Amino acid sequence: MASTAVEQALEVAILSRCSDKTLESALFLDESAPIQSFHAKTVVSRALGLIGRAANEDLVMIRNIRNLFAHSRIEVDFDAPEVVAACELITLPERLELETEGGPAPPIERYVRSCVEYVACLMSYETDPLGKKLGRFGSIVLDLKGSSPGQGG
């Protein structure tokens, strides 16, 4: 569910850069829409400067984790070694210095908290298409590294 919210937030961010908002169906929903998949949305977001390299890599991990749950032929949970390993590759908790009292956050917390932060920042493009109001926090989350907002690093 968290990954679905991230995917929808990517759509909102991409649409924020479109001059014709009526193309939403043609871009994302139609049978031959060019930006249907989570992967395509991530690639386009990176190309448009909505996210930087580290955010892109995190979103690839979030998509991979989603796919592990969706397509596994065996029961998978956040304690499964492949899920733990993928969650450890999400860098946002370190970039935001998010840790629990006992050290690094458990895999499910890393995953969910990262999804929540990505959704919040990506959704901000809806009312701020150029990302001028993202601030330091949003720039860290989206990995815009001191570049002008909306011009990913």
Rank of each mutant, 00 (worst) to 15 (best):
A2D: 11
T4V: 08
V6F: 05
Q8C: 04
A9F: 03
A9S: 07
L10E: 00
L10Q: 03
E11G: 05
V12M: 03
I14W: 03
L15V: 02
L15T: 00
L15A: 00
L15I: 01
L15K: 00
S16H: 05
R17W: 00
D20L: 08
L23Y: 02
S25R: 09
S25T: 09
F28T: 05
L29S: 14
A33K: 08
P34A: 07
P34H: 04
I35Y: 02
S37C: 01
A40M: 02
T42E: 09
V44S: 10
S45V: 14
S45P: 15
L48V: 08
L48H: 10
G49A: 14
I51C: 00
A54D: 11
N56P: 07
E57Y: 15
D58C: 12
L59W: 13
V60R: 13
M61Q: 01
R63I: 13
R66T: 05
F69Y: 09
H71E: 13
H71M: 13
R73P: 04
I74H: 02
E75S: 06
V76L: 03
D79Q: 09
A80M: 08
P81H: 05
V83Q: 00
V83E: 02
A85Q: 10
A86N: 02
C87T: 07
C87A: 12
E88R: 10
I90A: 07
I90S: 07
L92P: 06
E94I: 14
E94F: 12
L96A: 05
L96N: 04
E97H: 10
E97A: 10
L98C: 10
E99P: 13
T100V: 10
G102D: 15
G102Q: 12
A105Q: 06
P106D: 04
I108K: 09
I108L: 15
E109F: 02
V112R: 03
S114M: 05
E117V: 12
E117K: 11
A120T: 11
C121H: 02
L122I: 08
L122D: 02
L122S: 04
L122A: 01
Y125Q: 00
T127V: 14
T127W: 15
D128N: 04
D128F: 09
P129Y: 01
G131W: 04
G131M: 08
K132G: 02
K133T: 14
L134W: 01
G135F: 10
G135T: 02
V141C: 13
L142W: 12
P149Y: 15
P149F: 13
G150C: 13
Q151F: 03
